[in-house]
Nucleic acid binder design. Structure first.
Lengths: 112, 112
DNA sequence: AGAATAGGCAACAAAAATGTTGCCTGTCAA
DNA sequence: TTGACAGGCAACATTTTTGTTGCCTATTCT
C-alpha cells in the first residue's frame, strides 16, 4: 500500500467526515465537545479522532487534562492535486463540459 | 448517510485509486487494459470499476462489445471545496505555516 | 454457423472496520 | 487528600468489504 492509504481510509467513514466538518466550523474543540450530538460513545469518537490524527488530517495540542483538535487541510489539498491537473486546466467546472468532451473523444474512436 | 458516501467509499481502496491513476495517465481504457498489470482477476477489477462508476468518479461509454472508461474529476473537486475555504485563503501551502498558526492559537488559550 | 473475445452476475470464504463495555492513568478543585 | 473530570487502552461481537471461482450473455471474426 502507499503512504496516502491512511488519509483515504480516514475519510471513508461518515462519522469522521462529520468530525472534520465540526472542526472546519470551529477549530480547537475537545473530545467532549466533539462527542456531543454525535450519538456515539466517547470511546468511539476518541478512536475516530485517533484515526484522523494518524492520517494527519487532525493536529492536536494538549493543555493539562484537555486535548484540543485542529483541522489540517494539507492532505485534502494533495488529493485534489493528484487527479486534477492545475496546468492544463481540465474541464472540472461542470459535468456538462466533461460530457461534451467525452462525446468528442468517442467520435474519434467510433465516428458516426 | 450522506450522498457523498459513495465517493469517499470508492476512494478508500488502493486498487481503485490506482485505477484512477491509470485513467488520469490515459483516458478511455477498456476493462482488459486496466486489468493488465494489476495482479487481480478481471472480475475483481470489473467490480472496482463499478464502484467508481457508481460514485461518479468514472464515466463509461460503450462501443460494441467494448467499454471505455473515463476519469471524472468533479467529485474530487467537491472534496477539496468542502474543507478548504477558497475565499479566506487558509494556510494550506505548507504544514509549517499551520504549525505556526497552531502555536499562536495555543498561546491565546494557555499563555506561557 | 462456430470459435474467440469483451464483459457481467452470483455465491462463497477470508479479512478488515465499527461500536460497545469495562477498566485504567493523569489533572484539577474543594 | 478525596472526589470529580478529561482522556486512553483492550477485548469482544457484529457488520462490511474484498477477491476468488463458476457460469452466463453479447459481439466480432473466420
Amino acid at each position: 500500500m502507499r503512504d496516502d492509504d491512511a488519509v483515504f481510509n480516514a475519510l471513508a467513514d461518515g462519522s469522521r467526515r462529520e468530525l472534520l466538518d465540526r472542526l472546519y466550523a470551529r477549530d480547537g474543540q475537545t473530545l467532549r465537545e466533539l462527542t456531543a450530538g454525535l450519538q456515539m460513545s466517547r470511546q468511539a469518537v476518541s478512536r475516530h479522532l485517533g484515526v484522523l490524527e494518524g492520517a494527519g488530517l487532525v493536529v492536536t495540542r494538549r493543555s493539562g487534562r484537555e486535548k484540543f483538535h485542529f483541522l489540517n487541510p494539507v492532505p485534502i489539498q494533495l488529493i485534489h492535486d493528484r487527479w486534477i491537473d492545475k496546468y492544463t486546466e481540465r474541464p472540472v467546472t461542470a459535468l456538462v463540459d466533461l460530457k461534451t468532451e467525452l462525446e468528442q473523444r468517442h467520435d474519434l474512436i467510433d465516428p458516426p
